[in-house]
């Protein structure tokens, strides 16, 4: 009986090479140094998006190679991306509530 969730010939026996793992580690180290370096520069309003962008890039690299999503069934990526989309929707709706109230704060 075939099961379409995975390909028996290909999954799960993909072995990522040691070279790939060490290259990804080196890339993460470089990105960490860049994170610290750009924090000391003044990009005005862009500092936060830059820091968040680098962190997202690092997370993506970890997910794809250390967590093997690049060699996993497509449903794995679909679940992950789907959850991030839903977190985005929750953020959007909650922000639209909080930021449109008149708060008696200060």
């Amino acid at each position: 009986m075939s099961n379409e969730a995975y390909d028996k010939d290909d999954f799960p026996h993909h072995v990522t090479s040691l070279g790939t793992y060490f290259f990804i580690f080196a890339a993460l180290m470089v990105l960490t140094i860049i994170t610290v370096a750009v924090a000391y520069q003044d990009f005005g309003a862009w500092n936060v998006p830059i820091a968040f962008g680098i962190a997202t890039l690092k997370a993506t690299v970890v997910v794809l190679f250390f967590m093997h999503v690049i060699h996993s069934p497509k449903i794995t990526a679909a679940i992950l991306v789907g959850s991030i989309v839903f977190v985005g929707i929750l953020f959007l709706l909650t922000f639209s509530d909080y930021l449109t109230r008149l708060w008696p704060m200060s």
Partner: peptide, 28 residues
């Protein structure tokens, strides 16, 4: 080993975001 590793990497990713958020707010 694989699924424990997935958990460990996830915790690593959380820290990747926490580091700039909690340590690197305009240090200059």
């Amino acid at each position: 080993v694989e699924v424990s590793g997935l958990y460990w990497h996830f915790v690593d990713i959380v820290w990747i975001f926490l580091f700039p958020m909690l340590y690197l707010i305009d240090p200059a």
